[in-house]
Simulated assay, not measured.
Amino acid sequence: MSRERKLRYAMVGGGQGAFIGAVHRKAMALDGQFELVAGAFSSSPERARESGATLGLADDRNHGSWQELLADELRRGPGERVDLVSIVTPNHVHHPVALAFVQAGFHVVCDKPLVHTAAQADELVAAVRQAGTVFGVTYNYTGYPMVREARHLVCSGALGTLRKIAVQYNQGWLASAVEQGGDNKQADWRLDPQRSGNAGSMADIGSHAENLAATVTGLRPDALCADLSVFGTGRRLDDDAQLLLRYAGGARGIIVASQVAAGLENDLCLQVSGTLGSLIWRQEEPNQLIHAPLDGPRRILTRGSPWLSESARRAGRIPAGHPEAFIEAFANVYLGVAADIRARAERRIADPLDADYPNVEDGARGVRFIEKVVESAASEKKWTSVD
């Protein structure tokens, strides 16, 4: 594969009116690595083709369903076929689409949460291993430069032995009954168990919180105690979640994931404390990382600074003082996927700092975690083991 050639991709979902599809496309365009050449952008064939036409796709690659897309790509030769399929549908479509494209030998990036059940996750992991394909999951917050700096500081021992991991992710968009009337497309499917799965806020933003904690600290909880609540009248899925976590070695954790925190926007905050100090990062101020050591003054580390770790520096695009944020974080996940695809095409192992992205194993772990949270919330036991 020529390094100059853009990677051809197809998108499933993300058509007209879909927030996240546009974010993915903008992120993939940012570094000139990808080119959108095909798609099936909606479950409605008519809307799918209208969306594809608006995005400038050729008629013969603008499909009414993902099945048509897959069949057409398999008919094409290697020089024309897509390199990657990006899946940005509601959750219930992830598993069949991802599995079909992986089994057909295509590289895949899928939005989170990966699938509905641990059994589906295990099936997908096994398929990826058998196919030997690249599979990314867009836990986009791992793409922020200062999150990667936080990970570096924890791994370097700057915090000593970890004691406390706290992630709070608070939104207010479900504080009122926005799902009534059917005008809010996001609320319509995210609060539907058939399409969203067996968890609401826990799957939507709690999955991000779990992944952020795991990515930065490298720790996985042994046990959890969960409380899921439904504040919105008539809702069938949780809109608020609170978790206590226990880690091997003695560390403790807290995750709060609420979408009924009235007045809040996208307030994600990570705090990690150890025997030698603490780190604090807020998504709404993403270019700063606070490092508070035990035996020295608190310091504010900023994106783009020359003294940051190599992983944090590589994740930035412009000089310090020029803010980077949400779309750039998505773009960093896709850059990692692109690096891995190109390395495999050249039969080499990618530089891990280049191929830095959440993979199918991370996505599967998140699904298992969500299942354990739901199990814990329904149980009278104080602690539920996390296998």
Rank of each mutant, 00 (worst) to 15 (best):
S2I: 14
E4P: 13
R5P: 05
R5G: 08
Y9N: 02
A10Y: 04
V12E: 04
F19W: 11
V23P: 09
M28F: 10
D31M: 08
G32S: 11
F41Y: 13
E50S: 11
A53E: 15
A58C: 09
D60T: 08
G64Q: 01
W66M: 10
Q67P: 04
E68H: 10
E73G: 06
L74E: 07
R76V: 07
V82A: 07
L84C: 05
N91T: 09
H94P: 06
L99G: 00
A104Y: 11
T117K: 01
A118Y: 09
Q120G: 09
V128I: 10
T138A: 15
T142V: 15
T142F: 05
E149R: 03
A150D: 00
H152R: 03
C155M: 14
S156N: 01
Q171H: 14
L174E: 07
A177V: 11
G181C: 05
Q186N: 10
A187K: 00
L191E: 01
D192K: 08
S201V: 04
D204E: 11
S207G: 11
A209F: 00
N211S: 12
A213T: 07
A213M: 12
V216A: 01
A223W: 03
A223F: 04
C225Y: 07
T233H: 15
V260D: 05
D267K: 13
L268M: 09
C269S: 14
L276F: 09
G277F: 05
W281Q: 02
R282W: 05
R282P: 04
E285W: 04
L301S: 02
T302A: 14
A312Q: 03
R313Q: 14
R313G: 02
R313T: 01
R314M: 15
I318T: 12
P319V: 10
I327S: 15
E328D: 15
A329K: 00
D340F: 06
D340C: 13
R344L: 12
A345H: 13
A355V: 02
D356N: 11
Y357C: 07
Y357T: 08
V360H: 07
D362N: 15
R368Y: 10
S379E: 12
W383N: 01
S385W: 11
